[in-house]
Nucleic acid binder design. Structure first.
Length: 531
RNA sequence: GGGCCGGUAGCUCAACGGUAGAGCAGGGGCCUCUUAAGCCCAAGGUUGAGGGUUCGAGCCCCUCCCGGCUCACCA
């Protein structure tokens, strides 16, 4: 059974699926995996008849800890401040940095992927007092929290430490404060210059009520508090958090032992590597989500994440043949779903995989499966031949007019193929007319092929073929006259114009070029042969 | 050191415990042409090693070897 269906089948009653993200930094492709997985789980739950709500929390009380998006003079002021209180980047109309960021991820990635969770802002939960119950519980049971940290993760906290991060009343930072002495209504805190390396506290000390949004719970407790408050029943997380003794174990234990709430079902998912290496935004290894979206339409992007089981690493190398292969595999699964015979083994429940790859909430699977989908690699090559009428060509290949859906798929693929050719396509996928000079590959041609090129040049000079058809006919006729196997004739032509041993239908290729250039090149290639 | 994933054809990978299979590369073949950007054929394997469970193991269990990522400070 497909993994998401299996999960859904093991649950009962109304479900709340939750995912969240700290709204800073760039969204790289890998961070999309979680969202897509949660969306599939949500759809699987609805599929088995369980009422399901899909929430997406924006952790905008988190401290700004990445200066990449800040102007130099803002770094000192805002590093360490809650993201909800950091101004939006210049040029943005958003109310603050977090809002701006969510606008970016939502409009540029979630929505095109057909994913529509209910967004909520953690800063609002605090401000409205909805987290107060958990904040008090955490402070009242601080010794228990310390014990969990120690037992589960071997993290030792001093006996005065409190699980709380206060927003400094003087400088507004939250990442720099250290809280102590909970008296039931207020805590003492100090904004320390050297608490963390990435932000500098102002040195202010004071007492403040931890309720109503003046303080937040540390990460692990906040996570558990959200589960309790929102009634979360399913929430997966990346393997960095799911490791033994890691964040998830800590939050699970806090949920049970401090808040006395059973934590949600976990789905630990692996990362997405690029070319066998981890993606690192700081090293420039990260592939931004929006740039991948240019070469991978939404359905293929979903497919990329939904094809492997969650705990399998995805190795995604946009430079290789990953992208054309992804399209081909998608098309193969589509064909199989449509009931056509396909080569190779199929994954278990491939129809389910195909359905979840389509944009939700309730796609027409059979229409999508039977739709005509031009092969990506084929399109990419056709696009490189000047003067090709792609739409007409596709109608001819399908043998019937395209449906609205098929026309949309074609348009999507044409733009993806163009982007791929511009950015990631390997040399061998690129078709380049070698206008500057005769390709060196011509040197490898035989005397018979050179003679053929010379004969073709003379025939073309006389007859001036004006169409692909005319050229194609001439190519075959001259080959026949020279008693040259057509394979060798075509090979010579591809070498002379493309520097490759194969290529597109030669007649149409030559017809797309200026006649004078073609004749000149044929003669030149034949001449080099003679010399 | 702990956790997760992987090791299958030359390469990239697939195969809900039931005859190991694709794509690419390599070998052979196929046009007076209607995608030669294609099609057909053949070849290619002790599934990292060793034990175990089973009528049956690439798959499950145990012990190793190799590689990748990740955690142990913060979120």
């Amino acid at each position: 059974m497909y993994w998401a269906d299996e999960l859904a089948a093991s649950l009962a009653g109304p479900q709340v699926v939750n995912d969240s993200k700290s709204p800073s930094g760039t969204v790289h492709v890998g961070s999309l995996r979680g969202v897509v997985l949660h969306d599939a789980i949500h759809r699987a739950l609805i599929g088995v008849g369980l009422p399901s709500t899909f929430l997406y929390g924006v952790d905008d009380m988190d401290a700004m800890d990445s200066q990449a998006k800040l102007t130099p003079d803002a770094v000192d002021k805002y590093m360490g401040a809650p993201l909800s209180r950091v101004p939006a980047p210049e040029g943005s109309t958003a109310a603050n940095y977090a809002r701006h960021f969510v606008g970016e991820i939502f409009f540029r990635t979630f929505e095109p992927l057909g994913i529509k969770p209910e967004f909520y802002w953690v800063s609002e939960l605090y401000a409205a007092g909805r987290m107060d119950h958990y904040v008090k519980l955490a402070l009242d049971r601080a010794d228990k929290v310390r014990e969990v940290y120690s037992r589960v993760s071997h993290v030792e906290r001093s006996s005065e430490w409190l699980p709380l991060q206060v927003i400094c009343e003087n400088c507004g930072k939250i990442g720099t404060t250290y809280a102590t002495d909970w008296d039931g209504s207020t805590v003492a805190y100090a904004c320390k210059p050297d608490l963390v390396w990435w932000a500098r506290g102002c040195g202010h000390e004071g007492r403040v009520s931890p309720l109503g949004g003046q303080a937040k719970l540390p990460w692990n407790l906040e996570w558990a508090a959200k589960w309790g408050l929102l009634g979360v029943t399913v929430e997966g997380c990346g393997k960095d958090l799911a490791t033994a003794g890691g964040s998830r174990d800590r939050s699970d234990a806090i949920s049970r032992e401090v808040f006395e709430v059973e934590p949600p079902r976990n789905v630990a998912y692996e990362f997405l590597n690029v070319g066998g290496k981890k993606m690192s935004t700081s090293k420039g290894q990260g592939v931004a989500a929006h740039s991948i979206a240019e070469v991978l339409p939404p359905e293929q992007l979903r497919f990329l994440f939904l094809r492997p089981r969650p705990n399998q690493v995805i190795d995604f190398d946009p430079e290789g043949d990953t992208i054309p292969r992804l399209f081909d595999e998608f098309d193969r699964i589509a064909a199989a779903t449509a009931g056509r015979e396909v080569k190779g083994e199929l994954p278990a429940d491939y129809e389910r995989l195909f359905g979840y790859s389509l944009l939700g909430p309730d796609p027409d699977v059979s229409a999508a499966a039977t739709a005509f989908r031009p092969a990506f690699g084929h399109l990419a090559l056709l696009l490189q031949i000047p003067g090709t009428d792609i739409d007409a060509r596709m109608v001819a290949e399908k043998g019937a007019p395209l449906t609205e859906l098929e026309a949309a798929v074609l348009a999507e693929r044409v733009s993806a193929a163009r982007a791929w050719l511009d950015s990631y396509a390997p040399e061998r996928a690129r078709l380049v007319i070698r206008r500057d000079a005769v390709p060196t590959e011509v040197a490898a041609l035989g005397a018979d092929q050179r003679a053929y090129l010379a004969a073709l040049a003379e025939a073309a000079a006389v007859e001036a073929p004006g169409s692909g058809d005319a050229w194609q006919t001439l190519i075959f006729r001259v080959a026949a006259e020279a008693e040259l196997a057509s394979g060798r004739a075509f090979g010579a032509l591809y070498a002379a114009f493309l520097g490759r041993s194969n290529g597109p239908r030669a007649g149409w290729l030559l017809a797309s070029l200026e006649p004078a250039f073609v004749v000149e090149r044929l003669r030149a290639a034949a001449g080099i042969a003679a010399a």
